[in-house]
Nucleic acid binder design. Structure first.
Length: 1173
RNA sequence: GCUCAAGUGGCGGAAUUGGUAGACGCGCUGGAUUCAAAAUCCAGUUCUUUCGGGAGUGUGGGUUCGAUUCCCACCUUGAGUACCA
């Protein structure tokens, strides 16, 4: 009987599907094992041979574990939300759901024919409402949670509200927004509902914020950092710009440390762990605050003029320009009460300068004393509307800008002016102490920061008046080098720049800021070498030495990292060193015995600090600790851990994603109750953003929330008081993939995202296989959500995958043909009449074997042209021929790199070359569309090069073709045989004949001609030896994921058994079980032919018995000075002395020694003999 | 620049508690079978050689009786990341 893979494979795939052979049991006495593949995005292109590599590996492991008696969960699904289906919808109008459905069908067909043992009853699709219902549910859970740093876990938001009610927010140690103001329990109770909601939003694990995002205009959406490669979008390479938008964010930064710590307990590849560690970017150091020496401000010029172009200086906000006119007008038309009070204040009754109708942020306040940060407001008739507005205004002025606001009524001013003035005076005094207190608390909080890492204290930035100093806070990882500080550098965007710049330097600084603003972030990043900057003219005071330190600005300091300012230590940092050299700033040396005249000393280990007062003579580590200790003691710095990990933006301006379960009431986001989920994606006319720039969901007509009927209704009903607009953004691609592994455990549960029992039984993924490209995306976000779900008691473990393997990429072998291009050499004076010198020259392709370099190529082409009289010999030297490599479709090329020229010309992609001339392999000219015979059409060779497999390179190999020709078992074996799983390796279809003939040889072992012939006789010693050698190796290999070597082991076994003419059931039955994880179809078939009625898939794995491998003799390698010269068969029970005697007496030994006496003879019994001398 | 991984025949790759380098397969060469081809089978295939042998795992050192394997320096390639203070 012939091995017919097509029939066998089809039959068994049908059998498995019908019998649900691979359905995982929900409860079982067997131990559980969960093998997971990263689920695919079903793209329109379908699978190429690179995609199934990981699936085959995991399938082998899953099947192996079934043989080993495990209850195996091996599911598969689709990450089916995403951009391509939406882009296709924009182009064609076809609903993404339809595109997705079609693509999934293709994927399923392709996967099925490879014979995977997936449990399809648990399939998930992230785009199906039954699934994203639970994605929405998790979002709500995140919204209803905050991160408590004291317990170091996420807790319910109601717990936070309870604390607020009881003691305000001063005792709360939470991960939250940076600019949170403190309030007492009473104040909390007094806040309006909206105010409370606003405050809570600053603590929630998912929150709305105006964030600077990566906006991609071409795609019309925001991209995450990991979706951007080299400043352009990963998908489509469109430019990306920074833009401010109100977006949902995820407070992943709360988990930075735990995400880092968790890496230690999971068995993931080191490079992947490294890249996550890198991404989280923990750096340990200190925050240090430098006082700025008071700038001498220009006299006479009003602050107003400066405020137009210098944000840091003005007391007004961004709209100040427009408001200034309004303020002027109000000054001209004061109310009677205002006029009376101003007269007094102007006359310096209070001894301090007041300003009238002055801009603070976006508010015009009645009177303000900038020195003491006191605002005096006079209110007219109070009605409720005004009251609430005033309260909000007060809150903002007090919390955001640190002013104290006091209010008087018109009547008070007019009726009892003296009382009002004395009240103001009292308040001014209070403010004086309050400001002192503020400074103190800041230094105190700096002290406590080492223990409790609360949010960063704000830079003390009091008014620009005299007497109170500005401070520049910096983050440094090297506080030990603080005595090496010779200047400071601020980012050009730093808020203090405008404020501290002296008049003399103003022009230079402004010019510099202008110049850097022009350069895009990308330019700035690309151009690292150019050193640029400007001196502000201001100085800071070194907190330890008290020396004056120049303050510079420079674009090598990034506004977005740390505090946007650095203390520059030129002797110990490359960039600071280059900057100092360039601008002639002193470079003090604070390292013992190190020469810094040519370059800075950046090493830490073994460095001894010098010229640093109390730090001198200490080693780096000790100095670092002592420096932090001292700065905490003296109150201008504290130890701090900084993370690079930013909160993750969670909104996308897209259609094809999960809708948020969110509506807006009064501008505040409200969660829809979980029992009304899913909120299903609405239908839209167009998938593009709306004309007024809203996301695609803005096109939906049925997209409003009826809070009474609890359902999505038509937008027309928005007029009703109880109907509210729904969120227009959708969730990013990583939302659905951040928890799907939990859903598989109980995929069809409609009551919960998975039942407690299932989660408890399956726990987590035992083996996860997928690509390394998800290192800082999916794999980080998924760990984050898992930890959150763990905190909330929803899942039982806080890491979702115990072991992870990155399968390597399979590269394609591209084929190149070389096209000749002719042109007249530059600068050659050719007579006008000869312009047509090259006109007659056709498109020419040259067979690769005809040339070795460019010169040879040119010669070959010219020779042809001259022969064919297509080139005038007189001009031959004036014409230059260059070669252009072009991709040829790999399906046109055979294993010997010969290309079907006829096929090339008829290829739909090469229409323009129909009339091209081909200079053939044998020197023949295949020209002008003449019909080439079967032989000559292959008379052309191509160059091959290994590249990423991609459609545009015409090097894609479709698994469908391989399966049709060689079978799924051959494909599986071959993909494993290519090389180590984790390695990138090139695909060469020709190699598959090896595994294909292996399968045929295997088949033949069971047959004698047409008939199955199996003997029940006892196996011989040699046969048992081969079998057990194979069992041992294959088992080891699978456990080590070394699948490539087990394929060779199978080949060796079959070769040996063929040589032994073995047809014993005792050998051939276990052999099938060993092979069945790799080649499930052929083994099922032979298993059945051997008389078994049930599937081979759960039969016990053969047990290795060492006794079959015991040998009595060893073929010893005899080496001289370590080089093996000959071998000698000796019994294994020989003693060292006996071995030495036998070896020394051997004639070949004597020949090697040539009469010398060996100095030493090393004998390792059972291993080797080495003779030295 | 930094971090990580990897360098072995014509090609994919094998061999590590340090012990016969090149398993297995592709390709190639020769042979058998065939009218012929495919398929199949057999033999050979690291380089070099005066056919005794000699050299050889990116380069140069080191440790060792013995190094593809361990250590140091360098070179090359690939991946990730970046004015991260």
């Amino acid at each position: 009987m012939q091995y017919n893979h097509q029939e066998i494979e089809k039959n068994w795939q049908k059998f498995w599907a019908e019998n649900q052979t691979f359905k995982a049991e929900q409860t079982s006495d067997k131990p559980k094992y969960y093998v997971l593949d990263m689920f695919p995005y079903p793209s329109g292109a379908g699978l190429h041979v690179g995609h199934p590599l990981g699936y085959i590996a995991s399938d082998i492991y899953a099947r192996y574990k079934r043989h080993k008696g495990f209850n195996v969960l091996h599911p598969q699904g689709y990450d089916s939300f995403g951009l391509p289906a939406e882009q296709y919808a924009i182009q064609t109008g076809q609903h993404p759901a339809k595109t997705t459905e079609d693509n999934i069908k293709t994927y399923r067909r392709q996967l099925d024919q490879i014979g995977f043992s997936f449990d399809w009853s648990r399939e998930v699709r992230t785009s199906s409402p039954e699934y994203y219902k639970w994605t929405q549910w998790i979002f709500i859970e995140l919204f209803n949670s905050w991160y408590n740093k004291d317990t170091d876990k996420a807790e319910d938001i109601s717990a936070l509200e309870k604390i607020f009610k009881k003691e305000g927010n001063t005792t709360v140690n939470a991960v939250c927004d940076e600019d949170i103001k403190s309030f007492s329990a009473d104040e909390w109770k007094a806040f309006s509902t909206k105010e409370k909601e606003e405050i809570l939003l600053q603590y929630r694990l998912t929150f709305l914020s105006d964030t600077e995002v990566n906006w991609c205009p071409a795609l019309g959406t925001v991209l995450a950092n990991d979706e951007i490669v080299n400043g352009v979008s990963e998908r489509g390479s469109h430019p990306v710009i920074r833009k401010k938008m109100t977006q949902w964010s995820m407070r992943i930064s709360a988990y930075a440390q735990r995400l880092l710590d968790g890496l230690e307990k999971i068995d993931w590849p080191q490079p992947l762990k490294d890249s996550q560690t890198n991404w989280i970017g923990r750096s340990q150091g200190a925050m240090v605050s430098f006082e700025v020496l008071s700038p001498t401000l220009s006299k006479g010029k009003g602050a107003n003029e400066q405020s137009k172009n210098a944000k840091g200086y003005m007391t007004g906000g961004t709209n100040s320009y427009l408001l200034l006119e309004k303020a002027k007008e109000m000054r001209a038309n004061p109310t009677p009460a205002e006029a009376i009070l101003w007269k007094q204040l102007k006359g310096k009754k209070t001894k301090l300068k007041f300003r009238q109708q002055h801009l603070i942020n976006d508010y015009i306040v009645d009177f303000v004393c900038l020195t003491r940060k006191l605002i005096v407001e006079i209110d007219g008739k109070i009605h409720d509307y005004q009251l609430e507005k005033d309260a909000a205004r007060t809150l903002e002025l007090e919390q955001k800008s640190g002013f104290k606001v006091i209010r008087f009524k018109n009547e008070q001013v007019i009726g009892n002016l003296d009382k009002v003035l004395s009240d103001i005076d009292k308040e001014l005094n209070n403010q004086f102490y309050a400001l002192k207190e503020l400074e103190k608390t800041i230094t105190q909080s700096q002290n406590t920061h080492t223990k409790k890492d609360k949010h960063t204290p704000p830079t003390v930035s009091l008014s620009s008046g005299k007497g109170v100093r500005d401070r520049i806070t910096v983050f440094t990882t090297r506080p030990d080098t603080i005595y090496g500080v010779s200047f400071m550098t601020l980012a050009p965007e730093h808020e203090l720049v405008a404020k501290i710049t002296t008049d003399a330097q103003k022009a230079e600084v402004e010019a510099y800021i202008k110049a850097t603003a022009k350069r895009s972030e990308r330019d700035r990043m690309a151009d690292v070498k150019t050193i640029s900057g400007a001196f502000t003219g201001a100085y800071a005071i070194h907190p330890f030495s008290g020396e004056k330190v120049q303050i510079w600005i420079g674009d090598y300091v990034l506004a977005g990292y740390g505090t946007g300012a650095v203390m520059a230590v030129p002797c110990g940092d490359e960039r600071d060193y280059a900057f100092a050299k360039h601008f002639g700033i002193p470079i003090p040396n604070i390292f013992e015995g190190v020469d810094i005249s040519e370059q800075p000393h950046t090493d830490k280990e073994g460095t001894v600090i010098a010229n640093s007062d109390f730090l001198s003579g200490l080693k780096y580590k000790k100095a670092l600790k002592l420096a932090i200790y001292e700065m905490e003691k003296r109150g201008f710095g504290y130890g701090k851990i900084n993370y690079r990990l930013r909160d993750a933006v969670f909104s996308r301006q897209r259609y094809w994603g999960e809708p948020f379960p969110v509506y807006y009431k009064d501008g505040m986001p409200q969660m829809i109750d979980a029992k009304h989920l899913p909120i299903v994606l609405p239908e839209v006319e167009k998938y593009l953003p709306t004309e007024d720039g809203k996301p695609p969901l803005g096109n939906a007509t049925e997209w409003a929330w009826d809070s009474r009927a609890k359902k999505v209704v038509s937008n027309e009903k928005l007029k009703n008081k109880t109907v509210y607009p729904l969120e227009l953004n959708t969730m990013p691609g990583w939302a659905g993939s951040s928890w799907y592994f939990n859903r598989y455990m109980d995929a069809n549960n409609s009551e919960a995202f998975a039942s407690k029992e299932s989660l408890e039984y399956w726990q987590n993924v035992d083996l996860y296989i997928g690509g390394s490209e998800h290192a800082t995306g999916h794999l980080l976000y998924a760990r984050f959500w898992q930890k959150f779900l763990f905190d909330k008691g929803i899942v039982p473990v806080d890491e979702f995958a115990k072991k992870l393997i990155n399968q390597g990429m399979i590269l394609g072998t591209s084929a190149f043909v070389f096209k000749a291009t002719a042109f007249v050499k530059n600068g050659c004076a050719i007579d006008k009449s000869n312009d047509d010198v090259i006109e007659k020259i056709p498109t020419i392709f040259v067979s690769k074997n005809l040339f070795t370099n460019d010169d040879k190529f040119e010669t070959v082409v010219k020779n042809y042209l001259l022969d064919a009289k297509l080139l005038n010999p007189n001009f031959a030297d004036l014409v230059m021929i260059t070669k252009t490599p072009l991709h040829a479709d790999v399906s046109l090329v055979n294993a010997s790199d010969e290309m079907d020229v006829e096929g090339f010309k008829n290829h739909p992609l090469n229409k323009e070359y129909k009339d091209a001339v081909f200079l053939g392999k044998s020197g023949k000219v295949l020209s002008f569309g003449e019909d080439l015979g079967e032989e000559t059409r292959w008379d052309f060779t191509v160059a091959r090069e290994v590249e990423k497999m991609s459609k545009s390179k015409y090097n894609v190999v479709n698994p469908d073709d391989i399966v049709a020709e060689y079978g799924a078992d051959a494909l599986r074996l071959f993909e494993m045989f290519l090389g180590p799983l984790e390695q990138t390796k090139p695909w060469k279809t020709s190699g598959i004949s090896g595994v294909s003939s292996f399968l045929k040889k295997l088949w033949k072992l069971y047959f004698n001609g047409e008939n199955l012939e199996i003997s029940d006789e006892n196996a011989t010693k040699d046969e048992l030896k081969t079998l057990h050698k194979t069992i041992k190796k294959v088992e080891q290999d699978i456990e080590n994921f070394s699948f490539n070597t087990s394929v060779s082991t199978f080949m060796i076994a079959v070769n040996e058994l063929t040589a032994l003419k073995c047809n014993k059931r005792e050998i051939l039955e276990p052999l099938l079980i060993l092979l069945s994880p790799y080649a499930p179809h052929i083994t099922e078939e032979l298993w059945k032919l051997l008389g078994h009625k049930t599937s081979i898939s759960t039969v016990d794995f053969p047990v290795f018995e060492a006794k079959h491998l015991i040998e009595s003799a060893k073929n010893y390698p005899i080496s001289f000075n370590g080089k093996m010269r000959f071998t000698l068969e000796l019994p294994l029970d020989l003693s060292k002395e006996e071995i030495e005697k036998t070896v020394m007496e051997h004639e070949k030994t004597q020949a090697q020694l040539e009469g010398r006496t060996p100095k030493k003879v090393i004998i390792v019994p059972g291993k080797i003999v080495n003779i030295v001398g």
